[in-house]
Structure formats: structure tokens, C-alpha cells
Write a protein that binds this DNA or RNA. Structure first.
Length: 448
RNA sequence: GCGAUCGUAGUUCAGUUGGUUAGAACGCCGGCUUGUGAUGCCGGAGGUCGCGGGUUCAAGUCCCGUCGAUCGCCCCA
């Protein structure tokens, strides 16, 4: 690489190969699951007026105060690359009059931007999948949203991750708790870590999940949210947990779990890998793979009517690290012309096969040995060989690469044979899955 | 924003106490009398050792800076 070749910007990534396949798998699975829960697909701008984020997230949050990519456009407006989805979705809801669709279930995904120090699982341009239910104040909305998140993780095959659940209460409960925490920690201010002394002013709730041993000494006796919850808030949380139990979603109460952004009320949650699990190891310092909560106050902060809502977002890169390697689907059919003279015929045949829905690749480089070699390594089930004789007779050589058996067939017959091959492979895969399931069932029976 | 480790072919890495033309594997390209593969054989291309400066007769190797990656803190998805 030459000295003048440009490099990617810090914290951005070019995703390719197995990683890109896993990334696509995460998005495709999300699309599939989202439809089962009848969330509607939506797309939103990647940038908004800066105030959209500043007003809704809270001026003192780290995201707003030091992590936004903000710039002035040529018209002099201050714009910001979205650091999260929720604020922009709320803005869209208000400016398009989507109240008419309430309760509105929305799903989206795409890139987000935060000026942070890059690490494994943390990038300056990163990607999230996102789900929101807007205009629904019922706890059932929280339950459905969480059930979908749990379902998604199962479909992705992610294990060793637990839903950590908390309630921050309504606005009054949350404010009273906050005041209680400031009183409690303020009395021992000098003994807290430097970080927590700062948090005391900016976001006292955050002290609760501090890892500093100086702070940990005071955590056990810190005021708990439960003591400040109004009857309504308590009843709300109770409905959520009962609903989760009914839906079969496992959860764990996490009293110290708070959310960094100002707009959260009531339900707050994160899916976190269990300590010592494979998932925890894969993620490094980044623990939360999916997080969110209820944000009943957000719409008002943007000047809209009082509108209850819940939502979550999950980092696609983090999910990708947990779903394991996925490779490109193998080629099904290889078309191999013997020489230059047969190439046009090969193009014609390959196109017919693709139009018949077979993943087909042409192999025209190197000698015959290399062509077969490559076809084999790409995973081809069969090769269609075209030489001078085939050109003359119109019948092509069809070679089953597993058995080595080779016959002269018409194009129609080749398509028919190819369907048979695919069907046989599908049956074999299903048999494998079945016997795996049987083994699991047997193992379960022995445990009982 | 703070602290720490690392940076050599496309990739994964080796490179002795500083010492001549920087190596391996895989990958890539070509060939093995040009109609047949899944462990074969032969040959080839590809690196100003992240970048810039310094010490030295001599730097991939030591020092400083810078950029980037990784790990922890902070924050978050």
C-alpha cells in the first residue's frame, strides 16, 4: 500500500466476509421476527437538527455534551449525525402526525455516530436495530416489546444472556429517588471516587453501578427506588413482570440498573451476558447488547403532546460477535467451458440456470484442473461442462461432483436434475436436524 | 477525555545481544503435451518493516513524536 493511499476514518469499519455474513444474518433475523410481532418497517434521516438530540437526550449527558458529530450546513443550521434512534423517531412521529396510527409499532435499523474512543464492540460509526411502540401507555406494550427482544436473541442462537430489569418509576418517583440519592451520597461526597463526585452533580443514578471500590462501600445502604415508587408506578411494574412471566421471558431484577439518557421513565432494561459466559468473553468490556426502556416524557420535551412510548435498540456489531462465523452460501452449479470458443455458450447457460433460481458461477480461469478445483472449493453440487462436442450436439455434460457420475443432458434435463440434487441435500439437512433434536430430547429425558 | 500493550508480504506470523540482498505458511498468478476436481508437482509476482524524526559506522530491532488497533477506566448498543 502506497503512502498516499487513504485510510478509513478512526472508529469506522469496512465489514466483509464472515463478519458481513453475520451482520446480514442479524438484520435478516430481526426483519423476520419483527413481522411476527407486526412492527412496521420505517426509515429515518441519518441527520437531524442538533436540537432534536440536545433537547430530548439531556444537555448534560455524555452523548450530547461530548460525543455528537455536529456541524453547520451551508445554510447556517446546526445539524447532527444521529447518535441514537429514539429522538429522531419521536421527531418524525410528531412532524408527520403519526398520532393517527397510535399505538404505532415501528422497527428500523441503520448507522449511528458517536465520537468515542474506539474499542472492541465500540465504534464511531456503529449500527443498531431498533424497535419502538409509540402512543401506548399500557404495561402490555413493555411486555410485548421485551418478548420480541427475547425472541430475537433466541432466533439468533445467542445464549448466556439475561434480561436485567428495573423500574425508574414515574416522573415524581424518579425525582424523589434522585433527590434521596443526592442527599445520601452528598453526605459522604469526599470519600467517593472522582468520577462519582462528578456524577453526583450530573447523573447521581449512575453512581449505583460504579465499579470503583471507594464507591462500592456505600452502595448497599443507598436508597432504593422501591421506597420512592408511587402506588401507580408499583402497580405498573408489577403488571410488566407478571406479563413477562406469562410470556415465558426470563428476567432478573436489577435495582442498580439506570439508563444514561434523561428521557427514561418506568421500565428500564438491558440484556447482559452472564458473568463468565462465552458471550461475555466475546464482548470484552462492552456488556450491554440490547437496552432500552419507557420514555413517556420525551415527546413533551420536543414540544409535542403527552405521548407514552417504549423502545429498545441493540448493537448489530455486538450481536454479530455473538452469532458466530457465518460463511457465504455455497455455489450450487458450476458452469465450465473448455476453452474460449465455448465461453459465450457458457454465459448463456449460466444465465438460464440463475433465472431458474440456482446459485451459479462460471469458471473460466486457469486450466481444467484449476477450474474443477475452484468449483469444488466453492461447494458446487454439480458442474456443467461445455466443449466443442457439446456445442455441436446441443447436449451438455452434467457431472455430479459428489459421485463423479457424468451424463450428456439437455438444458431442461439439467435443470430438472439440479432440482433433484437440491431436494436431496435439503432432505439430508433436515434428517440431520431431526436426529440432533432427537438426541437433545433423549438427553433431557435422562436428566429427569 | 485518562492509563497500558501492540503495529513486518493480501492474511496469520517468524526475524537471535542492533550487523550484508527481510523469511515461512496460506492465499494469488502461470505451467505440469491444453476434455475433468476434491491430499500432487514445478515456477512466479508481492514488503521503502504504520508514518515522521533522532541515536549509531550500521536500525525491522534502541529513543521521541504521530496515526491506528487492542485491553482497562469513562460512557453506551
Amino acid at each position: 500500500m502506497s503512502k498516499n493511499t487513504p485510510k478509513a476514518i478512526r472508529g469506522t469499519q469496512d465489514i466483509f466476509g464472515a463478519d458481513a455474513e453475520s451482520f446480514a444474518f442479524v438484520v435478516e433475523t430481526f426483519e423476520r421476527v419483527r413481522k411476527l410481532y407486526r412492527f412496521r418497517r420505517a426509515e429515518f434521516p441519518v441527520f437531524e437538527k442538533t436540537e432534536v438530540f440536545a433537547r430530548s437526550l439531556g444537555e448534560t449527558t455524555d452523548v450530547v455534551s461530548k460525543e455528537m458529530y455536529s456541524f453547520e450546513d451551508r445554510g447556517g443550521d446546526s445539524l447532527t449525525l444521529r447518535p441514537e434512534f429514539t429522538a429522531g423517531i419521536a421527531r418524525a412521529y410528531l412532524s408527520n402526525g403519526w398520532q393517527q396510527h397510535a399505538p404505532l409499532k415501528i422497527a428500523t435499523h441503520g448507522p449511528l455516530f458517536r465520537y468515542e474512543r474506539p474499542q472492541k464492540g465500540r465504534y464511531r460509526q456503529f449500527h443498531q436495530i431498533d424497535a419502538e411502540i409509540i402512543g401506548a401507555g399500557e404495561p402490555q406494550a413493555d411486555v410485548e416489546l421485551l418478548a420480541m427482544a427475547d425472541h430475537l436473541l433466541k432466533e439468533l442462537g445467542i445464549e448466556g444472556v439475561t434480561l436485567h430489569l428495573n423500574t425508574l418509576g414515574d416522573a415524581a418517583s424518579r425525582d424523589a429517588w434522585r433527590a434521596g440519592l443526592i442527599d445520601y451520597f452528598g453526605a459522604v461526597r469526599g470519600e467517593l471516587s472522582e468520577d462519582s463526585q462528578e456524577r453526583l452533580d450530573k447523573n447521581p443514578l449512575r453512581i449505583l453501578d460504579s465499579k470503583d471500590p471507594r464507591d462500592k462501600a456505600f452502595l448497599a445502604d443507598a436508597p432504593k427506588i422501591d421506597a420512592f415508587l408511587s402506588n401507580e408506578a408499583l402497580a405498573f411494574f408489577d403488571s410488566v413482570t407478571k406479563g413477562l412471566d406469562a410470556a415465558g421471558v426470563k428476567w432478573k431484577r436489577a435495582e442498580a440498573l439506570v439508563r444514561g439518557l434523561d428521557y427514561y421513565r418506568h421500565t428500564a432494561f438491558e440484556f447482559i451476558p452472564d458473568e463468565g459466559s462465552e458471550a461475555a468473553k466475546a464482548l470484552g468490556a462492552q456488556s450491554t447488547i440490547l437496552g432500552g426502556g419507557r420514555y413517556d416524557g420525551l415527546m413533551e420535551s420536543l414540544g409535542g403532546p403527552d405521548t407514552p412510548a417504549v423502545g429498545w435498540a441493540a448493537g448489530i456489531e455486538r450481536l454479530t460477535m455473538l452469532v458466530g462465523e457465518r460463511n457465504q452460501e455455497p455455489v450450487e452449479l458450476a458452469v465450465i467451458p473448455l476453452g474460449k470458443d465455448e465461453e459465450l455458450k457458457a454465459i448463456e447457460v449460466a444465465q438460464s440456470l440463475r433465472l431458474s433460481h440456482f446459485a451459479t458461477e462460471l469458471f473460466v480461469r486457469g486450466n481444467m484442473k484449476k477450474r474443477f478445483n475452484r468449483a469444488d472449493q466453492a461447494g458446487a453440487k454439480a458442474a456443467i461442462i461445455i466443449g466443442a462436442d457439446e456445442l455441436a450436439s446441443g447436449l451438455l455434460q452434467f457431472k455430479d461432483l459428489k459421485t463423479g457420475e457424468q451424463t450428456a443432458l439437455s438444458l431442461d434435463a439439467i435443470i430438472e436434475r439440479s432440482w433433484d440434487l437440491r431436494f436431496a441435500d435439503d432432505m439430508e439437512a433436515m434428517d440431520d436436524q431431526l436426529s440432533e433434536l432427537e438426541q437433545e430430547v433423549r438427553a433431557l429425558g435422562e436428566q429427569d
